[in-house]
Design a protein around this nucleic acid. Structure first.
Lengths: 193, 193
DNA sequence: ACCCTGTAGCTAATTAGATTAGCTTGATGG
DNA sequence: CCATCAAGCTAATCTAATTAGCTACAGGGT
């Protein structure tokens, strides 16, 4: 019988597709193998087991997210950039909920973990937004962390269909963007105190 | 041999303790049974399987979180209340990371799901904070959702030890509180535009 | 064209864990 | 003191991950 000729990337890509279809907890080696026309043990030639596979999916997700965000932010600043960041994130998570769920518990395996670099790129995009608001170096780390919490929280809820938002979700989403925008602008120009 | 005399609550309480010790993914029926001095199949007399157990842990967590938050907010308003909300959440999640992780993917089983009521109570606390900032009914839903994203995002990261925060985490935490405070105050008193 | 070797993929077997079936028996109300 | 019911048990099944060891295809070197 002809060989499938898989690579690690093939396996991870197929797994990412599958996990978005069936949900994070239901991804199994057996199902993935089936999808690839191969038996489950064969996958171990390409990945180091289920945990490794999940970690690779997480890395893929953060990498893709980082690229989507960077593209969307091209040439924008201030509210435009902030809006692009959040909108791109929302679009990515909506399109790939399984992948994003894979990122939630993911921990770094070491200083060379590609997931670390991918995460750094996303954080750099957040930093770029913040520089557009005139956030100084002294506050930058704190600001990045705060924005990260909000974006991640939104993404987690979105990925778990944790929104039973009765009203218009789009409107709430826009409101959130404007809320962050106000908060960021208020740093430079404090309102009455 | 004498009977253990377990109740469903005993089982869920023990599971909650165990999950905080060993982490969400490592909670198994066998380990829990061992902890309770019982065989795994016996647990099925009290809970409906692992999925049900996880759902009950999530409900317990959100209930406890809601109470902790409500207590902390007693008699406070504005920045004080906001700070109490976030500090209590942080303390709860730090003390009970496994429980909080159980809430992440949890979905409502129906309109009578106790998890729904527990969640509503937490949202009510958020709403109370927002009313203290003078948020009107028209914006209340949007504002609740925005704050929820930030709080949840923070909690998820905290529960997964997703913070490799190099600098002082306390300082970043305080900064985040002040950031939200500024954003909320800016709604009533828009800065230059 | 032919062999050599590395490796992709296979089957079989092991292990862990969830769950079900059906039995046993302690506790408890009458 | 008995009847009942549910709490717990053992045994068995099922699914999924993983390991061991075999086979044979594919590509490089002769």
């Amino acid at each position: 019988m002809p060989r499938a000729g898989l690579t690690s990337d093939d396996v991870v890509t197929a797994a990412a597709g599958l996990i978005d279809e069936i949900g994070y907890p239901d991804l199994t080696m057996g199902l993935l193998a089936q999808r690839l026309g191969v038996r489950a043990p064969s996958l171990y030639k390409h990945v180091d087991g289920l945990a490794d596979l999940q970690h690779r999916i997480a890395t893929l997700a953060i990498t893709e997210l980082g690229e989507a965000v960077r593209d969307a932010m091209q040439g924008r600043a201030g509210l435009d950039a902030l809006s692009a960041l959040l909108t791109a994130t929302r679009a990515y998570v909506t399109a790939h909920p399984g992948r994003y769920n894979a990122t939630i518990g993911a921990e770094f395996t070491g200083p060379d973990d590609p997931l670390l670099k991918a995460s750094a790129r996303v954080l750099a995009s957040i930093a770029a937004v913040l520089r557009g608001y005139g956030i100084g170096d002294g506050e930058m780390d704190h600001a990045i962390r705060a924005i990260r919490c909000t974006v991640h929280g939104f993404a987690v809820l979105q990925a778990s269909s944790g929104f039973q938002w009765s009203g218009d979700p789009d409107e709430s989403f826009d409101w959130m963007i404007r809320f962050i925008d106000r908060g960021l602008r208020a740093i430079r120009a404090p309102a009455g105190r």
